[in-house]
Amino acid sequence: MLRFIANRFLQGIIVLIALYTITFFLIKAMPGDPFTGEKNIAEETKELMREKYGLNDSVFTQYFLYLKNVFTEGSLGISTSKAHSVNEMIGQSFPVSCVLGITALLIAIAVGVPLGVASAVRQNSWIDYSSMAWAMIGICVPAFTVGPILQIFLAMKLPLFNVAGWSSPRDVVLPAITLGLVTTAYIARLTRSGMLEILSQDYIRTAHAKGLPISRVVMKHALRGGLLPAVAYIGPAFAALISGSFIVETIFQVPGMGQHFVNATKARDPFLLQGVVLFFGLLIVIMNLAADILTGLLNPRVRLTQE
């Protein structure tokens, strides 16, 4: 188990270096630099700024210098557009996104898994058809439609929540529902197909032949295996949820991390962009590892010691 984790950790570092390399050169391939668009700044000042941020060094010096700073100091650089340390910016916005993302995931699991199980147990019944129809809607309808609809009905017509803002714990609810909707829908569909496959297995017939009531057959004999596809999906999905969503943050005025991805790109801010991409990559690596460990706990046939 420890060997497995160490192994995956090393792989993760390789993945992150690859990710860094690709984004670094993609950013370099963008025309212009952070200061190209700034019309009100004198050319000499721009030149000074470029010098300060090291943008005049050779591409390879820049590449290795940033890498060195990440490894030795854990520093992700200074944002050229906001003049703050990228670590600080992530440090402020990530907790917000994290709370939002965790709430969204909990809602998604609490709704998606029971829906999926019920659909599978009552395959081709009205429960199945209606919950799968809802799941399809959840996948198809975008957040910028769901968000405003929730705002209209649950904040304006029924004043249960604030329309937007991030000041009280209640403010988590609407953005979390909006953010978690797609995940809920996917979890429901994956749980349903996973459960259907398990319920058709021979050992489910064995369980019936033992005289077990249906509830016990489902909960004890089918659920563990049936959840595996959903678990494999939840890992990366969770990383995506807690790293913020620009659309949801904009609709509900949440100071999360999603804004940085878009703003950094717009401002051609190489260090901010590099920083959030690397951080997101790190989250994905960790969550995938967590999902694999969870799979190993659920499924005794998976041995984590082997690669």
């Binding site: 297995q201 021979d202 050992y203 064995t206 369980a207 004890k220 004999h221 659920l298 005794p300 046939r301």
Partner: peptide, 10 residues
């Protein structure tokens, strides 16, 4: 088939 008829998770 004793492989497929026993629950692999228990």
């Amino acid at each position: 088939d004793p492989m497929s008829c026993l629950n692999p998770y228990l």
